[in-house]
Amino acid sequence: MSQFSLSVRENSPAQVIDLNGYLDAHTAPQLEQAFQNLLDEKRFNIIVNFRDLIYISSAGLGVFMAFVEDVRGNEGDIKLVAMSPKVYNVFDLLGFPMLYEIYDEEHQARQKFLDSPSSSLG
């Protein structure tokens, strides 16, 4: 059984990582690799879509922590969208909403990137 999968697509001016399943210490390295690939390609406007994510532990949250400084240092951002109440609860438990922009819908995060002066960096 595959517990977790992700895919990356473009929603200009951002790259979107779609998450699916269970993100824990076993599966977090896959997300780490996806972030690393985007940074290697100098893609710093990143939206993470949680619509199909069922579960997240601190190992998953740690991935966002590991990359956010680098991304923001390059005029980009990691914006989080479409979390289920259960998943949002974990973010909230750790106070992550004070560090990340979290939106109900992907188009809202995309609009924020369009409104920001650095959106051409994609």
Binding site: S57, S58, A59, L61, G62, M65, A66, E69, V90, L93, L94
Partner: peptide, 11 residues
């Protein structure tokens, strides 16, 4: 302070 780790114990 951009600290790392310790989130699990906090939870």
């Amino acid at each position: 302070q951009c600290l790392r780790g310790g989130l699990g114990v906090h939870i």
